[in-house]
């Protein structure tokens, strides 16, 4: 009797172990594949934020998709050039950060307003109990870099390019932009809960999709980060059949422009002769 029990126990233990071993191997294979893809992207895209590029460069991305060339022509009517960002899951925050710093460099009033709103966003996280030690460090670093970029006459663009391509510094800025986004989502959770799929609370969504590095962004993130910072942003959404533009907030005058292709964001610059603010867009 006793012996049977031991036998049964050890058999079931073995089954559990085998099962978890199989799951472990599968997960490790997925994880190692993911790391492989990350390395490949990093080797193809040496930059985190590229230098300015011609829009015609985009045609190369779509050699076998003729329908996109019409979209690129439409894009060229409004925009002059772009900067690419690395496709590492942080592209929205990096593109947002770079273009905001660039825009605020020569705009003292907007710089002060932005500085104030990110401070408030940070304060909100303190109130709801975020670990202040790390939070203050990310905040202070962000403010320090922002001040360096915007003080006086504004730093040269090369300095900004250097800042956002230094992986350690650049990611530190991304971490804080993710926290600001999280702060806004939680502050306005009664509103944002309506736009979140697959999570029962906004808090859970933030700790799974917003605050960890490398997690991609969509409409909810764009809405939250622009409303938290008061930055008006226009996004040119390029899809197969059509394009559309979205402005956050819809009645604002955009100071930054991003290009959205499903799953990825780059930075756009309106061409000098186009009226990018035209309400017909």
């Amino acid at each position: 009797m006793e012996g049977d029990k031991t036998l049964a126990t050890s058999a079931s233990t073995k089954a559990v172990e085998e099962e978890s071993l199989a799951a472990l191997n599968m997960d490790e294979a997925i994880l190692s594949q993911r790391r492989g893809i990350e390395e490949q992207i990093a080797s193809e895209q040496q930059y985190l934020v590229s230098s300015t590029r011609e829009l015609s460069e985009l045609e190369r991305d779509y050699q076998h998709h003729g329908e996109f060339s019409a979209r690129i022509q439409e894009l060229k009517l409004i925009y002059g050039c772009l900067r690419r960002t690395r496709a590492d899951g942080n592209c929205f925050y990096r593109a947002f950060g770079f273009s905001v710093f660039e825009a605020l460099r020569k705009n003292k009033a907007a710089y002060q307003a932005f500085r104030k709103s990110i401070t408030e966003a940070k304060e909100y996280l303190v109130i709801i109990g975020y670990p202040t030690f790390t939070l203050e460090d990310f905040y202070e670093n962000f403010i320090e870099e922002l001040d360096k970029v915007c003080d006086g006459e504004g730093c040269p663009i090369s300095q900004l390019e250097e800042l956002f391509n230094d992986k350690g510094m650049s990611n530190y800025l991304v971490v804080f932009l993710r926290l600001i986004t999280s702060s806004q989502l939680q502050k306005e959770q009664d509103f944002f809960i309506n736009f979140i799929d697959g999570y029962s609370t906004v808090k859970e969504f933030c700790s799974q999709e917003i605050e960890p590095m490398d997690k991609e962004s969509d409409h909810v993130q764009m809405n939250a980060l622009t409303s938290a910072t008061g930055v008006c942003m226009r996004v040119f959404c390029m899809e197969r059949g059509q394009y559309s533009t979205v402005t956050f907030p819809s009645d604002g005058k955009p100071i930054i422009h991003l290009l959205y292709r499903p799953g990825h964001f780059d930075i756009l610059y309106p061409s000098a002769d186009a009226t990018a603010d035209s309400p017909t867009l």
Binding site: Y130, P131, F138, P212
Partner: peptide
């Protein structure tokens, strides 16, 4: 997040820079 080696439920809190 995404590292599901140990069968954690999706909602379990993962590593965050904070």
């Amino acid at each position: 997040p995404g590292d599901d080696n140990y069968g954690y439920e999706k909602a379990a809190e993962r590593w965050l820079p904070i």
